[in-house]
């Protein structure tokens, strides 16, 4: 009886402390789950969604960060869109502002009136504009050294990221990771960037789609059936004792 009271009191205290800390902890590296399965990617957010996705599409997000400037040099930093579709990182000294500048504001915005696609290519997903202005004054910040951009592209064909300088599109040396719908590149100027694919390239083949479904749902089914049996047996055992 003494143990029961003590355990309950300790439990109450742990419950209150645990909940308070879990709720009040500053968000930061907050995990997606306390355990469990990987989350499927949230649907790609289009500026102009394909007709079949128009009803469920959510508008893409923008991103902004203000970095301090010292003697015209920006110490580096990153910014990403609120939906995580684009992430930009500037290394130390990659940006230069005027000597009177005190801060630089970097923005990533989805472009609502994108330029015509590059020749022999199609634009996949949204075109994003990366811009940087200094304060005070609002003058443009220049890129001295290449910066890193990571951009998500929608399901379907993808070849490379391309950069639009206001007149022409330029191919960027693009890196991808198999099975990951993000591509990375190192542009050397601020402007508009898009994921592209050869014109006329189709989506995934039926076989690829089927393989993906069998892999995902097969493993999910295994977890549900196998784990369910284990849990059911444990419940039965507990009822018997």
């Amino acid at each position: 009886m003494v143990l029961a009271v003590t355990a309950r009191q300790a439990g109450k205290l742990a419950l209150v402390i645990g909940l308070a800390v879990a709720v009040l902890l500053p968000s930061g590296p907050r995990p997606a789950l306390f355990d469990g399965l990987p989350l499927p990617q949230a649907p790609y957010r289009y500026v102009n969604p394909p007709p079949d996705l128009a009803s469920s599409n959510q508008p893409p997000g923008s991103g902004q960060a203000t970095l301090p400037v010292q003697n015209g040099q920006v110490p580096g930093g990153g910014v990403q869109t609120s939906d995580g579709q684009v992430l930009v990182y500037f290394g130390l000294g990659a940006l230069r502002a005027s000597s009177s500048a005190q801060s630089a504001t970097i923005r990533i915005d989805p472009v609502t009136d994108p330029p015509a696609p590059p020749r022999a290519s199609q634009i996949r997903g949204n075109v994003y504009r990366v811009s940087a202005t200094e304060e005070p004054g609002g003058g443009e910040v220049t890129v001295v050294r290449g910066y890193n951009i990571t951009m998500r592209y929608p399901p379907g064909p993808f070849q490379e990221l391309q950069f639009y300088d206001g007149t022409n599109w330029h191919s960027l040396r693009t890196t991808t990771v198999s099975g990951n719908p993000y591509a990375g590149a190192t542009p050397t100027a601020l402007g508009e960037i898009a994921a592209t694919a050869p014109a006329g390239a189709g989506g995934e083949s039926l076989l690829t789609i089927l393989a993906r479904i069998v892999e995902s749902y097969g493993l999910l089914a295994f977890i549900i059936v196998f784990g369910g049996i284990a849990v059911a047996q444990e419940i039965r055992r507990r009822r018997r004792t």
């Binding site: 300790a10 419950l15 402390i17 645990g18 879990a22 902890l25 907050r30 995990p31 306390f34 355990d35």
Partner: peptide, 24 residues
Amino acid sequence: PRYGLGAMPLDFAVGLALGGLRAV
């Protein structure tokens, strides 16, 4: 292994809360 060191305080707090719930 899944979430790294940064998630440890949150997971410990949640573990404490769930353990407390079990005890209560």
